[in-house]
Structures are given as structure tokens and as C-alpha cells.
Design a protein around this nucleic acid. Structure first.
Length: 484
RNA sequence: GCCCCUGUCGUCUAGCCAGGUUAGGACAUCGCCCUUUCAAGGCGGCAGCACGGGUUCAAGUCCCGUCGGGGGCGCCA
């Protein structure tokens, strides 16, 4: 059975890059009917935090990336790593190094003076005699355990990059166990991946250069080497590494900003992966069915929010009002909730009416409120254009028509017929009535078809809103006159 | 500095492994249609093989180099 893992370190929140790695692992596991393990790599006890771990779990749940095993915390497994480092020590595949960081830095500088540009640890402690080691240990001199990198070269077949090879002479005798007894990343990752039965390692390209070190460790332990797949790193719009100034925040921020999890998942999936068919978005089931590492591209994609907006608008249009309602309530403030939950049936109707032209849930809430509570504001430009003497006259004229339509006949076709007749009678275009009417009803210059809007409000409320607008125009005129 | 990875429209990508395409699609953008506005939808436009050699009848595709971008080289992960 295939088994993969996502192994974030809780030194920051789950951002776009991490989420993509998690997603690809998840898709791979689901596609292969395998298992997805979550492991928190918190061995850097200074920079890691409990809060960040929680945040990462929350973000993954929001995205729908549930894990089958874990979360495991490396900080709870320190003795395991230590034992494994000591095993290599006993077998002569690793050695104690008593050099302090300062001493090493000093030697590095000396080497640079002599013109050696890429200095590696000089294996000074590899040649210590038994007696010297005994003495240092007795003195309680702190030490690290270093891996003794063997000669030769290391090759592996990456699922995405194909063949990758490195000369072992390029690799330094890296540290396995720090002097405080904590493992370094290379040790803990290899030990855990083996012990947890990970068969496929899918992670970012930033780990590609370090993979040979880990392969060397697998060999030293005599373990089966898993398959590797390194995902190209996501870049910012300036083709530079993703950073805060590119809007790289927690994925939960995207939720707050009105994006749906399915939108973000599709957006991430299509960065460096080609699903084979061109559709605005796919359901999770479709993504799982289609997923394959072979279709992951090798070059780094640029993160482009416009695409996310497009996908989000398509997902929003595709959802049922009831589903959208749930999502909207989820991100609403208490104040907004009171408006949205007051008359759920009406809210659902408004959602249905508006959803095809919404890009974003946050924006949706803002628009929705104008349909569900009293109008809080009229669009400024719209006011200047349509709330004038003529606009008022047209509103009054059409208001009379509406008042004469019975409640049972309050339908799109009749409303439209009456409006067009009225316009012709006055000698104006239908639009001259429609524009002020739209502003009066919705507070906005844009809306769904005006007759759908009328029907949505119903006769009574439509009349109230139109009257209110007329009153508003009157007051505005009075204010202007008194100023003169 | 050394090592590794990587270059197709503005962006995401198909095509490359098994050389012969008017280099295809999507987003964005522009125009037109529809139309009461805005979206949506339909139709169309602009726009790309980083550069230089080589192999070949033929190179986006194979080889070499240059340049660009990214990553790694920690008692960080």
C-alpha cells in the first residue's frame, strides 16, 4: 500500500506553498487508495509553537485534507532519533565531533583566506584516538554526532525530475544529532519516514539538493529507499521566491477574504499540474481520479490571483443556495449574521438571484445586505446620474403603475410590459426608468435583471423602497435649495 | 564561490521522451454580438518556443554552450 506524509514545521502558518504540497500528497494517497500521514516537525524548539501547529491543522481541515494517521509530533520522539544516531555511531558510520561552532567558523575563515571558496567540515574529529574521545567524554565536553559520508556518487530517480545525481565529495559530513540531543532534520525525517512506512515522499524542490544526504542515511541504516517526487516551488508575480509582500499569508486568510476551499484547491492543483481536460474547476472526486505525478510540470509556476478569482466565481455559481448560505454564514460577522439569518428563506432567494455574478463571498455579503435590510447607502455616482428631477418623475410615474398591479399579477412579464408602455407614453427610453428604479431598489447601479429584482422584493416592499427613494430625492433637493 | 534543478503568449499550460503542428487551450486583456445595468454566455483579435552554435532534407522537440530564474551548501526545517 502506498503511504505518503505531509510534514510541516510549525514555525509559521500554512501558506500557499505548504498547502499545495499537502494537497498533492493527499491527492496521491486518495488516488492510490493509500494512506496520508500528518507529522509535525517541531524539533526546532525555539521557533516552533503550539499555536502554529493548531493553525496548520485548522487550515488543512478547512481545505478538506483530512489525514489518516497522526498528527505525530517529532518533539515527542526524541529518544528514537537519538537511539538511531547512536546505532550508526556504533557501526562506525558516524562519529562524535567535539569541535565547537566557533572553532569550525574559524577554520572556515582560514580556508577562505587561502582561497578555498567552498570549505566543508575537515573531519578533524574523525581521527581522534580512543583515549582522546574517552577524555573528552569524561570532561563532559559537548559533542554532536556527524555522519561519515562515504565515497562515490549518489543517484536517484525523481518522479518529476527524472535522474538526479551528485558526487558524494560535494556533501559535507553533516550533523545527525545536535549537542543538546535533538536530531537534525535529515536524521529525524529519514527515521520517521522509515518507521512510519512512508513509500513516497512528495515535497517541495527546496529539498531536492538535500535528498542525496537522506538517501545515504537510508543506505547506512540498510533501509528501503522510498520514491521521491519534488514539486517545483511556487513563485511570486515578480518571479521571485514567494514572500509576504506577494500576499502570502495563511490559507485561512483566503477563507476570510471570501474564497471557497474548493476554489483554492483547484487553483493550487493547477499550479504545475495538468488535469488533462480544460474545465474551470473539478470536484475533489474528479481531482483524485485524474491525479498523477507524471503530469506534474518541472518548472516553477507563478502565483496569479486573477485565476483564483475566476475559479471562485465559477464555484460560487455552481453551488446551491443552501450550500452558499452555509459558507456565507461561516465567514460573517455577528452583525451581518443578524441580517442574513433574520429571514432565511428570503436570504436563500436573494442568493439564488445574485450568485451568478459574484466573484467572492465577502463581496457577496456586502451586496446581499442591501437586499435584505433597509438600504444603507445609494451608490454615489448613481445618485448623481439618476436621482435628479427627471428620475424622480419617472419613479413616481412607474410607482403608480405598480400600485395598480394586483399582488397575484406581480410577474416579470407584466411588470416589463407596464414599464415599456409607460416609457413610450412619456416619450423616453425604457432605460430612463430602469436606471433610477435599480438604484432605488438595490442602492446599486448594477443588479440582476430589474424585473427579477422587482419580483424578488414583491409588491409591498418594492413600493416602500421606491417611495423611500423619492423622499430621499426630495430631501436632497430641499437641502440644495436652502444652500442656495 | 561550489553543487543541483529549471526556461513555450502577461499568467497557468499542451506539444518534447518516439523531430515534419497554420505551435493548441484556459485566465487576463481588447473588440463585436446579446442587452435595462453588471456579470454570465457566444464570436473574434493581440500575444509565445530565452539566446547562440551543432546534428538533420527538416529542430519548440535531439546534442553542446551562453544567459536568465529558483533552490541547496547550518548544531533551521
Amino acid at each position: 500500500m502506498k503511504k505518503v506524509r505531509f510534514a510541516p514545521s510549525p514555525t509559521g502558518y500554512l501558506h500557499i506553498g505548504g498547502a499545495r504540497t499537502a494537497l498533492f500528497n493527499w491527492l496521491f494517497a486518495k488516488n492510490k487508495n493509500g494512506k496520508f500521514v500528518l507529522r509535525i516537525e517541531d524539533t526546532d524548539n525555539i521557533r516552533s509553537s503550539k499555536e502554529m501547529s493548531e493553525e496548520i491543522l485548522k487550515a488543512m481541515r478547512w481545505l478538506g485534507l483530512e489525514w489518516d494517521e497522526g498528527p505525530f509530533f517529532q518533539s515527542e520522539r526524541l529518544d528514537i532519533y537519538k537511539k538511531h544516531a547512536e546505532k550508526l555511531l556504533e557501526e562506525g558510520k558516524a562519529y562524535r565531533c567535539f569541535c565547537t561552532p566557533e572553532e569550525i567558523e574559524e577554520r572556515r575563515k582560514q580556508a577562505e583566506k587561502k582561497g578555498i571558496k567552498s570549505w566543508k567540515y575537515d573531519r578533524k574529529c574523525l581521527n581522534l584516538s580512543k583515549d582522546e574521545i574517552e577524555k573528552f567524554l569524561k570532561d563532559g565536553k559537548p559533542y554532536v554526532i556527524r555522519f561519515k559520508v562515504p565515497e562515490g556518487k549518489t543517484e536517484f530517480e525523481d518522479k518529476i525530475h527524472k535522474k538526479v545525481k551528485v558526487e558524494n565529495s560535494e556533501i559535507e559530513d553533516f550533523v545527525l544529532l545536535k549537542s543538546d540531543g535533538f536530531p537534525t532534520y535529515h536524521l529525524s525525517v529519514v527515521v520517521d519516514d522509515h518507521l512510519m512506512g512512508i513509500t513516497n515522499i512528495i515535497r517541495g524542490d527546496d529539498h531536492l539538493s538535500n535528498t542525496p544526504k537522506q538517501i545515504l542515511l537510508y543506505k547506512a541504516f540498510g533501509w528501503k529507499i522510498p520514491e521521491f517526487a519534488h514539486l517545483p516551488l511556487i513563485l511570486g508575480p515578480d518571479k521571485q521566491k514567494l514572500s509576504k509582500r506577494h500576499g502570502v499569508t495563511s490559507v485561512l486568510n483566503y477563507k476570510k477574504e471570501g474564497y471557497l476551499a474548493l476554489s483554492l484547491v483547484n487553483f493550487l492543483a493547477k499550479l504545475s499540474w495538468n488535469p488533462g481536460e480544460d474545465k474551470p474547476f473539478f470536484s475533489l472526486e474528479e481531482l483524485i481520479k485524474r491525479f498523477s505525478l507524471g503530469k506534474v510540470t518541472k518548472n516553477s509556476p507563478v502565483f496569479d490571483l486573477k485565476k483564483l478569482d475566476f475559479i471562485n466565481s465559477k464555484v460560487i455559481s455552481s453551488l446551491k443556495p443552501e450550500e452558499l448560505y452555509k459558507e456565507i454564514i461561516e465567514i460573517s460577522t455577528d452583525e451581518d449574521k443578524s441580517i442574513l439569518e433574520k429571514d432565511k428563506e428570503k436570504t436563500l432567494k436573494a442568493i439564488e438571484l445574485l450568485k451568478t455574478r459574484m466573484k467572492n463571498l465577502k463581496e457577496f455579503i456586502k451586496i446581499l445586505k442591501n437586499y435584505l435590510s433597509e438600504i444603507l447607502y445609494y451608490d454615489k455616482e448613481g445618485e448623481e446620474k439618476f436621482f435628479n428631477i427627471e428620475g424622480k418623475e419617472y419613479l413616481e410615474a412607474y410607482l403608480k403603475e405598480i400600485e395598480n398591479i394586483s399582488k397575484d399579477s406581480f410577474h416579470q412579464d407584466i411588470l416589463e410590459k407596464k414599464l415599456r408602455e409607460k416609457a413610450e407614453q412619456i416619450g423616453i427610453k425604457a432605460g430612463s426608468i430602469i436606471h433610477p428604479l435599480r438604484l432605488a431598489l438595490t442602492g446599486n447601479r448594477v443588479s440582476p435583471g430589474i424585473f427579477d429584482v422587482l419580483v424578488f422584493f414583491g409588491k409591498e416592499e418594492a413600493i416602500i423602497r421606491i417611495k423611500k427613494a423619492i423622499e430621499y430625492i426630495n430631501e436632497k433637493n430641499r437641502a440644495n435649495n436652502s444652500r442656495i
